[in-house]
Amino acid sequence: MTTTAPSVTAQTPPPPQLSSVGSGGLRWALVDSWVLTQRALSHWVRNPGPIIFSLVFNVLIVLMFVYLFGGAMQVPGGGEYRDFLLPGMFAMTMLFGIGLTTLAVTTDVERGVTDRFRSMPMSSAAVLIGRAVADMLFSILTLSVMIVAALVIGWRHHGTTGDFLAAIGLILLLRFALIWIGVYLGLAMSSAEAVTGVQTLEFPIGFLSSAFVATSTMPVWLGAIADWNPLSSTVNATRELFGNPGVASGSWITDNSMLMAVVWPVVLLLVFFPLSISAFRRLSR
């Protein structure tokens, strides 16, 4: 009589999901996130053209406004337009990053890369976290290039080292919140071509703020809208921390720019982070 031992089939444990908790799931998610971050970085190394173009474009915008339009610009309270503009441009470059994030996410979805990641034994949270970390690293590079360019053309900060670091922190906090807007839009877009609309909207949103001109020079109703633009709060707060001219005042939102420069990014995160997770889970399997 022959006895057959029951076969044992080795199974790969399921990957941690976005809702995973515990040290094991967290460790797995962090490792996978770093792998996907390196993937994004390697793409930039192999194809640096878009990255270089983005950096050069931002610098050209600064040069254009400082040297072409700067002579016609009046800063409330006096001061150099260059010093007024640069904090606004630092924040604007963070806004311009929405289109890059949206395009990267949409391209992966359209090519089926995201679906392949979802089918692999890896943390699904890493797909979003890896994208966010890579884009934050690029934002730090972008901001560093902008600061060097600003110093070359004569911009200076007049606050303490602590104030300078606090201003940089507020700018990067805004960028982190904007990344999740880009992630959500990238997951929601039907094709990479639709991203053109997002990139086009970056300009009116940026111009409808205190980044380029003082909102006090706008019609009252338009100035009020610009003051409540989250970008304006970051710009006004960083101008104050850098000790640059044109610090806004006169309304509750402008008088509390330092507070709102923290509140606005937190609100955006509370809205778009859950939306991004929901959109990710709704992707076709």
Rank of each mutant, 00 (worst) to 15 (best):
S42G: 01
V31T: 10
F96M: 05
S124I: 05
V45W: 03
S210L: 08
M258G: 07
L30R: 14
I171V: 15
S276M: 08
T196D: 00
F65R: 00
D135Y: 02
M218H: 07
F90V: 05
N236R: 11
L268M: 12
G169M: 12
G159A: 05
T12K: 15
A177M: 03
Y81S: 08
L283T: 11
S42N: 01
V8F: 13
V133R: 06
G22T: 14
I61T: 15
W252R: 13
A279L: 12
S123P: 09
V31N: 06
G97A: 11
F272L: 09
I181T: 04
G130P: 14
T234C: 06
L100H: 11
R131L: 11
D83E: 05
V271N: 04
T107Q: 07
G250Y: 12
T3P: 01
F176N: 10
R282N: 08
L283E: 13
L241E: 00
F242L: 08
V75K: 07
T9W: 13
M260Y: 08
L95Q: 04
Y67I: 13
P6Y: 06
L259Y: 05
G79C: 04
A149Y: 02
M92D: 00
S23I: 12
S139D: 09
A5H: 13
V198K: 12
P245Q: 00
P50L: 02
G206N: 08
L222W: 14
V113C: 00
L86G: 02
L187S: 08
L268S: 04
E193I: 03
T217Q: 11
G99K: 01
I98G: 09
G243Q: 06
M218Y: 15
R131Y: 09
I129H: 04
A10I: 10
T107G: 04
G223R: 08
F138T: 13
L222V: 15
I52Q: 08
V31C: 03
P16V: 14
S210V: 03
S190D: 07
A5S: 12
D32A: 05
R111K: 14
P76V: 11
V152G: 09
P14L: 14
M89A: 07
R239D: 00
W252L: 12
L165N: 10
W44D: 05
S284M: 06
I181A: 10
D227W: 10
R118C: 01
T9K: 14
L85H: 04
F90L: 11
D135T: 06
V220K: 15
P15I: 07
M136R: 07
L269A: 08
A29I: 04
R281G: 05
A177T: 03
S42Y: 02
L41V: 12
V183T: 15
T196M: 09
L259C: 01
G79A: 02
L68F: 13
R27M: 09
L55C: 12
W264A: 03
R175D: 02
S42T: 07
D83R: 08
W28K: 15
R156S: 10
L151I: 14
V56M: 12
D135C: 03
G88K: 04
A125Q: 02
T4N: 10
L85G: 04
